[in-house]
Design a protein around this nucleic acid. Structure first.
Length: 568
DNA sequence: GCCGTTTTCGGCCCGACTGTTTTCAGTCG
């Protein structure tokens, strides 16, 4: 539903419609996406209860739910090819330029645009210079660096649904996702599902009949590949129940990890395949039922999927030195969240309620500070929010509330408020929201300045990337990690699926300096609180243990961490 | 198109940067 509203907003912008109308649809899209109820279960009246959804949008949503289409949207779709809308996904290219390209040159796909630039067809077009061409080509390269891969949340939500549907099929003994999804890679090329059944036929047939299937790529007895309507490929493999462990190990990968484990097998005169671990001489099956058995027979402890990248996990396993990875259950609270006081869509009360339901023992509200001008924060508003937080604190017996803020690191590393004001917060996150392209030396100096600030406890989304849209900022990572370890400043693992920042390699790098981390959701809505699973997955890929993550600590220890950095 | 009221219209996120332009439009956060 949110996607449809956003599409309509884009189409309004591209066709030069009322900018405020477009913005109204964008706001509604965000509100719907972040709404705590299942929108499909609401009638027009219920829909109007959602903030920023009025009569007109509620009616359109209701109509869509009833009939599957909305005439106004269909009309704009007929005028603007879908490819034109893809153009505005290119960084630096917005609706106005996209419309010029379509109207003047008939360009309606990213591919056509790139061709047109190379053929110099944009020359002489008003508002398009050589630098614009360069920027567009650079933007396209950025987008394509993610390839045809999708963000992990998109793949995982689909996989969860499919696993549920397939598990219900008669004869299905087990079903699970495998592949890069099970390893929690940040982007996913295709969804690999594994099922166990004596008779694979009902499962294979069901796969081809799923609602979401747009195309059947391959359909066999043991394996079926389909493409969903959203364009994602799903491979489903069925094995006999007794081969479950070996198959899951095989299909989880990574390829490099599997090569290592098969080598180990070979050295022991064994052969490892998706059907089991076999004795080479006799051909007899040794083990196959569980992953644990397979690893154990190879002389290894079970290796968590998030480590299976051949990045030292096999050696660590052989030495008995695998890290005791943190899990979502270790997280005692979220330390970076927003409310509708700034750009969130849920109220303070809703956020706190939702956090309490997750069983947290503490929870920090960290709305944006004033220097991010679009958020219109003020000292008064922040202090008034603090009053409310203090009043609410204690109403949830098992969850304490912390009042913090997300500061804005300016080009010189300064933050929004003077020390006297910062001292009033329970903790502060500080993040880069601008000046992404400073030269390395200045970028590093800027970040170090913020890290040295005695009131900055967490650096939020430290490298400020957005997957497929914006590259990481260029900084001296060693200098940053050293400073964080020395000053007692945590680095965030931001759990938003298009950020996942720090990412796995940098986490591995940083922890060698003894850096502490905070795994936060950066929630702008109650539904975002659950995104924490992506941050936890990323943290596991970075080999993090609970001891290194400040929001697994008891509150007293967390408070001591904040206090230790502040002047006495 | 939504919202709030100084209610049935008028304001809506503000500022900066970039590139293309001669004074500003488009894009972004």
């Amino acid at each position: 539903m949110a996607g449809l509203l956003q599409e309509y907003a884009d189409l309004i912008s591209i066709t030069g419609g009322d900018a405020y109308k477009a913005r109204a649809y964008e706001k509604a899209a965000r509100a719907v996406a972040g709404h705590y109820q299942d929108v499909a279960q609401l009638d027009a009246k219920g829909l109007r209860q959602i903030p920023n959804v009025g009569r007109s949008i509620a009616d359109k949503v209701a109509e869509y739910l009833a009939s599957g289409s909305v005439p106004e949207i269909e009309e704009l779709r007929a005028r603007i090819p879908a490819g034109v809308r893809q153009l505005i996904a290119i960084p630096t290219l917005g609706p106005k330029k996209a419309n010029v390209l379509y109207q003047e040159l008939g360009i309606s796909s990213v591919e056509e645009l790139v061709d047109a630039i190379h053929a110099e067809k944009l020359r002489g077009l008003k508002g398009f210079g050589t630098k614009t061409e360069e920027n567009i080509l650079h933007g396209v390269r950025l987008m394509q660096s993610a390839g045809d891969r999708v963000l992990i949340n998109v793949a995982l939500e689909l996989a969860d649904e499919l696993v549920e549907e397939l598990s219900a099929v008669t004869g299905c003994v087990r079903c699970s996702y495998a592949g890069s999804l099970r390893r929690f890679r940040e982007t996913i090329g295709d969804v690999d599902l594994l099922a166990a059944a004596e008779d694979p036929e009902p499962l294979m047939r069901t796969v081809t009949e799923l609602d979401t299937v747009a195309e059947v790529i391959a359909h066999g007895q043991k394996k079926t590949s389909v493409r969903t309507r959203s364009g994602l490929q799903v491979d489903v493999r069925v094995v006999a129940p007794e081969a479950w462990g070996a198959a899951l190990q095989y299909f989880t990968g990574s390829k490099a990890h599997n090569i290592r484990t098969r080598e180990i097998a070979v050295h022991q005169k064994l052969k490892l395949s998706e059907y089991g671990l076999f004795d080479v001489d006799s051909g007899d099956l040794v083990v196959s039922q569980t992953e644990e058995e397979v690893y154990r027979r190879l002389g290894l402890p079970w290796i968590p999927p998030t480590l299976r990248e051949d990045r030292g996990e096999v050696e660590a396993a052989q030495r008995g030195e695998l890290p005791d990875l943190l899990t979502e259950q270790d997280i005692k609270g979220d330390l970076h969240t927003h409310t509708d006081l700034t750009d969130g869509v849920s109220t303070l009360e809703e956020m706190v309620e939702a956090a309490a339901r997750r069983g947290y023992s503490y929870y920090a509200i960290t709305d944006h500070a004033p220097n991010l001008y679009m958020q219109r924060m003020s000292d008064e508003k922040m202090l008034a929010q603090r009053e409310r937080v203090r009043e609410m604190d204690g109403k949830h017996r098992r969850m304490r509330l912390l009042h913090g803020t997300e500061l804005n690191i300016d080009a010189d590393g300064e933050v929004d408020w003077p020390p006297e004001f910062l001292a009033g917060f329970d903790l502060c996150v500080a993040s880069v929201h601008s000046y992404f392209t400073l030269p390395r030396e200045r970028q590093t100096r800027r970040l170090l300045k913020a890290i040295e600030n005695p009131y900055v406890n967490i650096i939020g989304h430290p490298l400020a990337r957005q997957i497929g849209r914006r590259p990481e900022i260029d900084v001296d990572l060693d200098a940053v990690f050293e400073a964080c370890a020395r000053t007692g400043t945590a680095l965030e693992v931001n759990s938003f699926a298009d950020r996942l920042d720090l990412r796995d390699e940098h986490i591995m790098h940083a922890r060698r300096y003894g850096v502490k981390f905070a795994i936060d959701s950066d929630s702008h809505s109650t539904v975002h609180l659950g995104y924490l699973r992506y941050g936890v997955g990323t943290a596991q890929r970075g080999w993090l243990t609970a001891a290194e993550v400040i929001n697994t600590w008891p509150l007293t220890k967390l408070r001591a961490f904040v206090r230790a950095k502040r002047p006495r």
